[in-house]
Simulated assay, not measured.
Amino acid sequence: MKIKKYEDNLIIQKRNEIYFLPFLEILYVERFGNSTIIHTEEEEITIRFSLHGLIDLLPSCFMRSHKSYIVNIRRVKQMKVLRGDSTTYEAFFNHEKSALITKENVSLLVK
């Protein structure tokens, strides 16, 4: 598998498929076990690539928001404190999708 940045797109080449993902269509990226899942409004693309490596390919509107998440800040609609955990927020996007953001990263956004 190969992943590279080309203009305003992330190009993901898997064995039999090539994805051209405009950066603005990516809501967030989630690490789950040994897999990384790229979430858009319409699909989820599973790859084997580290968040650390992926964040270097993404533009500045993406933030490593949590140990398991990268969030496209431009696509966040709302954030709420996670129930029972005052150190973590849940960021909401369209279509009931959500990702986690640490309190420290929320502080960077709302200075």
Rank of each mutant, 00 (worst) to 15 (best):
L27R: 00
N94G: 15
S65R: 02
E43H: 02
A91S: 12
L21D: 06
T102N: 11
S50Y: 04
F23R: 00
E25T: 05
L82R: 10
I47W: 07
S65F: 07
T102H: 05
E44V: 03
L51H: 00
I47A: 04
T88K: 03
V81F: 03
T36I: 08
F20S: 12
M79P: 02
P59M: 10
E30T: 04
K97A: 00
N72K: 00
S86E: 12
I45D: 03
N16C: 09
P59W: 06
M1P: 05
V76M: 06
A99F: 07
K5R: 14
S86Y: 07
H66M: 00
R15C: 15
A91H: 02
K4W: 09
T36N: 00
N105P: 06
L54Q: 12
R64M: 08
R15F: 15
T36F: 08
S65L: 03
I18A: 08
L24Q: 11
N105Q: 10
L27K: 04
H52S: 12
K67H: 01
F49Q: 10
N105F: 01
D56C: 15
N9I: 12
F32D: 09
H66E: 01
N34G: 09
Y6I: 15
Y89S: 10
L24A: 11
M1K: 14
K14F: 11
E44I: 09
R83G: 02
F92A: 12
I47C: 01
P22M: 00
N72I: 01
I3Y: 10
L51R: 00
F92E: 04
T87I: 11
I73F: 04
D8L: 07
F32A: 05
D56M: 14
I73G: 00
H39D: 02
K77W: 01
V76I: 03
I37G: 00
I38H: 06
I37E: 02
C61G: 10
